[in-house]
C-alpha cells in the first residue's frame, strides 16, 4: 500500500484566506483523521457500503449504529475534472491559483471525492489518470486531502 503519510510543503500560514469547512459532530472525525494525514470515510458494516460525504445514517440501509470510519488507500483515478479559470462566489484568494484543477476522484475502494489535483501542468490531466492523496496542512485544525498524479 502506498504511503499516504507523506506530506508536502504546506501552504500553512497564520492568515489562510480561503474557504474552510465548518466542523460538526458529524464531520469532525473526518477532519481529525485528515489532521493525522489519514484518509478515512464512513463505512456501513451492515450493508457493506462506503458512505461519502459524512452522513448521519447509512443512506442505503438506514442503519445508524453500524457506521465505522475506515481507512482508504488514498489511491484513485480521475473520473472527471474541471479547470477553474474564474473565481465566482468563493474566496478571492483562489484568484492566485488560477488556473487550477479540481478532479472528481474515484478512490479504488469505490467512493468519489472532489479535490484538487496539483503538481502537474493543467493540460496534462485526463480522465482515467491515477492519483494519490497527500495532505495540505492549511491551518492548525484543517488538513485538506489533495491529490497528485501517481
Amino acid at each position: 500500500m502506498p504511503d499516504q503519510e507523506e506530506s508536502v510543503a504546506s501552504s500553512q500560514s497564520t492568515s489562510y484566506a480561503k474557504f474552510l469547512p465548518e466542523l460538526s459532530s458529524l464531520t469532525k472525525p473526518f477532519w481529525e483523521y485528515c489532521e493525522k494525514h489519514e484518509l478515512r470515510m464512513q463505512y456501513c458494516a451492515k450493508c457493506s457500503q462506503w458512505i461519502w460525504y459524512p452522513k448521519a445514517w447509512c443512506p442505503s440501509c438506514g442503519d445508524r449504529k453500524s457506521i465505522e470510519w475506515r481507512k482508504l488507500s488514498g489511491v484513485g483515478t480521475i473520473y472527471s475534472f474541471t479547470i477553474i479559470r474564474q473565481v465566482i462566489d468563493n474566496s478571492p484568494a483562489f484568484q492566485a491559483d488560477i488556473p487550477f484543477i479540481i478532479g472528481l476522484i474515484e478512490l479504488e475502494e469505490g467512493p468519489r471525492i472532489y479535490s484538487n489535483v496539483t503538481g502537474t501542468p493543467i493540460d496534462s490531466v485526463s480522465i482515467g489518470d491515477r492519483v494519490m492523496v497527500y495532505f495540505d496542512d492549511v491551518t492548525q485544525e484543517i488538513s485538506l486531502p489533495k491529490f497528485r498524479k501517481y
Binding site: 480561503k18 474557504f19 474552510l20 469547512p21 460525504y53 477553474i84 474564474q86 473565481v87 465566482i88 462566489d89 468563493n90 474566496s91 483562489f94 491559483d97 487550477f100 479540481i102 471525492i113 472532489y114 479535490s115 484538487n116 484543517i142 485538506l144 489533495k146
Partner: peptide, 8 residues
C-alpha cells in the same frame, strides 16, 4: 466538501 477545494 466543495468550496474549500475552490469549487465555484
Amino acid at each position: 466538501f466543495q468550496k474549500p477545494f475552490g469549487m465555484m
